[in-house]
Amino acid sequence: MNGEFILKLVLECILLPFFAIFFGLLLKGIDRKLVARMQARVGPPIRQPFLDVIKLFSKENIVPEHAVKWIYNAMPLVCLASSIMVLFYIPLGFPPLLAGHGDLVLVLYILIIPSLAMIAGGFASSSPFATVGAQREMVTMISYELPLSIVIMSIAFYLPGSNSFSLDFISSHPLWNSVGVLGFAGLILLLMSLIIVTPGELAKVPFDVAEAETEIAEGVMVEYSGRNLALFYMADGVKIFAFASLIVAIFFPYSISPLLNLTGLYADIANFLFFILKVVIVMIFSVSIIRAAVARYRITSVVTGYWVTVAMMALIGLLLLMWDMHYHVRWS
């Protein structure tokens, strides 16, 4: 390991969090604007989330009297840090920064941490609404983990080789190229399951039961204000970015540089911009449109929905992939 490499790594590790926060907030802005247009409204300007964060940072940070103070104050930071951490393991148009040091399974684990932080923060804030919210968040988490892990396992199972869990490997071997008819149908099912898991993971309608505004007054967030709320708010944006990147990395890892005949630095830049575009499109389909089109579920329907319907969908996808490996029905 030479000095130049370490310098590059350190520089990138400093730059990435800033970019992640910036882009996460931008994604939130695009989402809000788009949903507003779908609802025939004008909507806020795209820079609105940035203004929100600036405003929140200038507000007083209130800690409830009966809260467990250190957990209450630490959790927003943990939530934001862990959301950013996911990005270090996901290829963002270029190989992940920490390639070779962690794989999909690790990403799965890190993805749980933001939710856990929210749960801990909710319990620590000692409000009955937050307690209900935290319980709901826990149940939601348990529900969507099953289909999510089935999807991840299926992908890893399908790819050959010993490092099939490595995201770098997955994204350099696009799945769509190697599957046959059955596998294609299976992949579609897996992609759909992952898209339905997204609103649950990101706590958006219809699976925002943990933060249901009209039911339990933002649930886990009810006591948070000022700086702490701003951190959660930014973490939410980063989480959207991270999860959309995960979908892009697994299902749409194509890069644009070969098409444009670019090499070197230009290729990297073009690939990165193309990647950003893909993330935005994935977000629109998995967050914005779903969020605008349906009503919120009850927590019981969330559990049955994820465990029965979505898990079944993912399992059928897995089954189709297995058949595909066995029978090799080709397109011709």
């Binding site: 949903v35 609802q39 025939a40 309608v205 605008a292 089109a293 349906v294 009503a295 919120r296």
Partner: peptide, 13 residues
């Protein structure tokens, strides 16, 4: 009623 169910698009419609 639509808003209480988290269905804001219907509320606006």
């Amino acid at each position: 009623a639509a808003h209480e169910l988290g269905f804001d698009t219907l509320l606006h419609y």
